[in-house]
Amino acid sequence: MDYFLRCLKFILPAAKVTLLLTVAALALGLVLGLLLAVARIYGRPPARSFAAIYSRVVRSLPTLVVLFLVYSFVTIVFGIRGVTTAVIALTACTAAYQSEIFRGAIQSLGTGQMAAARSLGMTKSVAVRSVIIPQALRLAIPSWSNEAAIVLKDSSLASAIGTTEIFRRAQQIGAANHDYLPAFLACGLIYFCLTFLTNRVLDYVQKRYRLKL
């Protein structure tokens, strides 16, 4: 029990890194995912194809493979290392998944909203920004919460490219003491709490902003 608490204490500071990875990847992925979804539905043919191909390719690859691809590429070409690499890789993945979430949400709005906005004289981009996206975001919250939990858990993969987040810390203390079970239990407990908190926050957001349909 004493060892378990020591594990918790050792791992817990790394929760900052896990949260940083998760929040950064989710936020960047939100912006990129929205752009991809809008390009896919309202873009010109080249933008449409790019968005479709990007999403298809990235979603076909294991996140771990994307991590190593990005790691190899970014490290060789730009000489960037560490957390930034992991953020880029996780963003690349979640952007693809989020683009599908937003695409579904936009499509479920139907074409009438766009027609109404355009008939008032809005440009396509104003209509997308002030009519389509606000509604799509609200509709997307349930699926987005799910994606948030997935990204939180997938951030553990960043340990494979040397990012010291909670899973890597658990490995470290476990290895140092040749006693892994308490270390991973502590690690699991922290993930559980983080996921639980994330879900509660997003549940609140969903209730607060639910679209009345």
């Binding site: 009438g112 027609a115 906005a117 355009r118 008939s119 440009t123 606000p134 509604q135 609200r138 009345k212």
Partner: peptide, 20 residues
Amino acid sequence: INKARERIGMVFQDFNLFTH
């Protein structure tokens, strides 16, 4: 066309009010 559409109102069968 956006300027022109300002001058032409349109009302739809299924309202198309902005739900948010």
